[in-house]
Design a protein around this nucleic acid. Structure first.
Length: 712
DNA sequence: ATGATAACAGTTTTT
DNA sequence: CTGTTATCAT
């Protein structure tokens, strides 16, 4: 749902009140069909509507189906007005998918329920209530790049990435600059707190809002206005949250406010798939949900409809090595299938060669390219893989990487639009004032900005009101005339945007020759096609929302990452993080070595690394191949590497195939156990899906599962 | 103001 | 080995 229609939606709710429940008979038979398609656990999750509910949804267990069915049940069977429900996700993609699936289940005559991302909800809420904080709702949402630019300007010495993440941490812990300063002990942190204070002042001055503000200002409003809080909570009587394992402290507290009057909170997630701890997500939110929300009902969805038994066995045994987890075991609904394979290679070149060869073989046997994917823990591993795929003539699509809206040429366009909708936006103005070149350098721009500030005017206003003579004392003569025409074009475009929006793009390109100025730059063709794509997006948006303004378009796209990957005739390669939520018939995971997966470094968490392994493995539907190398070229040097411990923990050994064939251990092998130390294998037997070894530790004989020892 | 070089750091990234 | 940023001549 776009911003325009969402706002309309908010208004409509107020005006028409609740919609009437649909035809009960019809709803009943539709609901019966939905229930028939659910398993027992899913059905019980759908029918539990009052009080806190934790749905532990394992990978591939029909999570989306369960949430959407529950929504349909609430609306069509229980008769809850759609306006009283709120469903939040993390990504636009998830929201879109869920909305589409929910629409197919919910009876047509109910108004679409509010189903959007956390941040979009924040945006909508602020549009309606930010005035209570003494701010105007014409604020602009900035992205993390904009944020870094602002921080860089404020601070010169400390690394902006660090400052940005610390400020984010403060905001997500609801710590204001004063408190941050008070609690800082190191001088660096005092310094960061000062930067934080200046940054906040800058945002306020320019009426900007960053991603974190969308949530923390929303929280602040609810926290400081009891009446608004009660009213909002009563409005959304049934709340559902997707991917709950990825929520942070602020999101938890926001949810506590939102359901303070009813506690009808249903969260869906998987503690075993929590892979964003480094970004502030708190696994504890899902682990201790029943402590935050007493009298919680817990439903586990453990039936897996995605992967073969063989793949699930491997994934289950890996994740069992984690201690902090609620504990569940995926149950296969598919037959055993092919064994999980382990490739080993001497180096990354051979690895990519082997993987490419396997992929070639699959393609030649008629497998469709988009059913194949290769995953890696760090993006740096993509290079050798890409080379190998190129050599083998395998077309691939790299998912992730630099996002569409983050590309320089697209950001320039966005800045143009921002200046056109708000000429006082100094920040965006500075980005484009010398694009295309108008002979203004860093020094001149700085001078203009300072003088404007001294005159208490925005740069645009300042330039516009100055005489040519006055301007010439700040910039060279040639630049002054360029500036004049720049100002004129912006004003004219603003009028066009208001009066003839369908002409807007053509006029923009005409006046500023955006595409022409890209000629001669590296990757010229890509850049021009990105500009064209952006133009297309704008036109589509206007076509779909004829009443929308440029400002609405801008706020909407700031919250968007490029989502829909076009299906083509190429295989996919991506990081494990980027693969969350996806599935592939044939999956390769490369870089299964100590130091890469698990990645070891400061702040690394072995259990989170293991969950990453688990997420990776559970993307596979019928074939899973892992690969490891003896040495890898990384950061300019070649490093000797050992096989990932996860290969062993997953019950796999070199050459693979522990399921039916020989175990890697035989009588007489020397092994080491974490507690008992070194010992000799005296017997091998099978225990469930794993091998059990009888080991003699210096006279002390014990039965131990093979995955708990390592070979010497 | 602009382009060329040196110095440097280097996971994962939903909004 | 990469890509990004700071600094220095032109």
């Amino acid at each position: 749902m776009n911003l325009a229609s969402c706002c309309h939606f908010f208004h409509t709710l107020v005006k028409i009140g609740y919609n009437k429940t649909s035809n009960a008979m019809k709803a009943r038979s539709d609901m019966d069909k939905i229930f028939d398609s659910l398993n027992d656990a899913q059905r019980s999750a759908v029918e539990t509507i009052d009080g806190p509910l934790l749905i532990l949804a394992g990978a591939g267990s029909g999570k989306t189906k369960t949430i959407t069915s529950r929504l349909a049940y609430l609306l069509d069977s229980v008769g809850v007005p759609s306006s009283q429900t709120l469903t939040l996700t993390f990504t636009n993609k998830a929201a879109k998918e869920m909305r589409e699936r929910a629409m197919g289940l919910i009876s047509q005559n109910s108004y679409p329920p509010l189903l959007c991302t956390f941040h979009k909800f924040g945006l909508l809420f602020l549009k309606f209530h930010i005035h209570l904080l003494g701010r105007s709702n014409t604020f602009v949402v900035i992205d993390s790049d904009d944020k870094k630019k602002i921080l860089k300007k404020i601070n010169a010495d400390l690394p902006t990435a660090l400052v940005a993440s610390e400020i984010s941490r403060y905001k997500n812990s609801l710590i204001d600059p004063k408190e941050a300063y008070a609690q800082a002990e190191l001088t660096n942190y005092k310094h960061i707190a000062k930067i934080y204070e200046e940054y906040q002042a800058y945002l306020l001055d320019n009426n900007l809002v960053d991603f974190d503000d969308l949530l923390c200002l929303t929280y602040k409003l609810l926290d400081e206005n009891d009446e608004l809080c009660t009213q909002t909570s009563e409005k959304y009587r049934y709340i559902m949250i997707d991917e709950y394992q990825d929520t942070n402290e602020l999101q938890l507290r926001l949810l506590q406010k939102l359901c303070s009057t009813h506690n009808n909170l249903c969260v869906v997630g998987d503690d075993d798939q929590s892979i964003y701890g480094w970004r502030g997500a708190h696994v504890r939110n899902i682990l201790e949900f029943d402590q935050d929300f007493p009298n919680t009902t817990i439903v586990k969805l453990e039936h897996n409809y995605r992967s073969t038994q063989a793949i699930l066995t491997v994934a289950n045994s890996l994740i069992e090595h984690n201690r902090s987890r609620l504990g569940k075991t995926l149950i296969a609904t598919k037959p055993s299938g092919e064994d999980v394979k382990v490739l080993s290679a001497h180096d990354e070149t051979e690895e990519s060669q082997k993987v490419a060869k396997e992929i070639r073989r699959l393609l030649d046997s008629g497998v469709r390219a988009n059913e194949i994917a290769v995953l890696y823990r760090i993006n740096a591993l993509s290079r050798s893989l890409e080379e190998g795929l190129n050599r083998a003539g395998v077309a691939y699509k790299l998912v992730g990487g630099l996002r569409f809206y983050d590309r320089a040429e697209v950001k320039d366009l966005i800045s143009y639009l921002r200046v056109i909708t708000n000429v006082h936006d100094n920040f965006s103005l500075k980005r484009i004032i010398n694009k295309p070149k108008r002979g203004l350098g860093k020094a001149t721009i700085e001078k203009l900005e300072l003088s404007a500030m001294a005159a208490s005017k925005s740069m645009f206003e300042f330039i516009d009101t100055l005489s040519d003579g006055e301007l010439e004392s700040l910039a060279r003569k040639k630049s002054v005339s360029e500036l004049r025409s720049f100002i004129r074009e912006i004003v004219e475009l603003r009028d066009i945007a208001e009066e003839a929006i369908y002409q807007f793009i053509d006029q923009l390109e005409n006046r500023f020759k955006i595409k022409e100025t890209l000629k001669g730059l590296p990757d010229e063709a890509d850049k021009i096609s990105n500009v064209d794509e952006f133009y297309g997006l704008f036109r589509d948006y206007i076509k779909q929302n004829p009443e929308a303004s440029v400002a609405e378009f801008l706020n909407d796209i700031t919250l968007q990452s490029d989502q829909d990957q076009v299906e083509g005739e190429s295989i996919y390669i991506m990081s494990i993080h980027a693969s969350k939520g996806l599935e592939f018939e044939h999956l390769f995971v490369i870089g299964m070595e100590e130091g890469f997966l698990p990645l070891i470094g400061d702040g690394s968490d072995l259990e989170e690394e293991r969950r990453l392994g688990y997420v990776a493995f559970t993307r596979a539907k019928s074939n899973l191949t892992l690969s490891s190398v003896n040495s890898r070229f990384y950061k300019g040097r070649r490093t000797e590497l050992q096989k990932s411990r996860f290969i062993n923990e997953a019950g796999l050994c070199e050459g693979s195939l522990i399921l039916e064939k020989n175990t890697a251990y035989k009588k007489g092998d020397l092994v080491r156990h974490k507690i008992f130390g070194a010992g000799r294998v005296e017997g091998v037997s099978k225990s469930g899906r794993e091998f059990k070894l009888l080991i003699n530790f210096g006279g002390n004989k014990r039965d131990i599962l093979a995955s708990f020892v390592e070979k010497l």
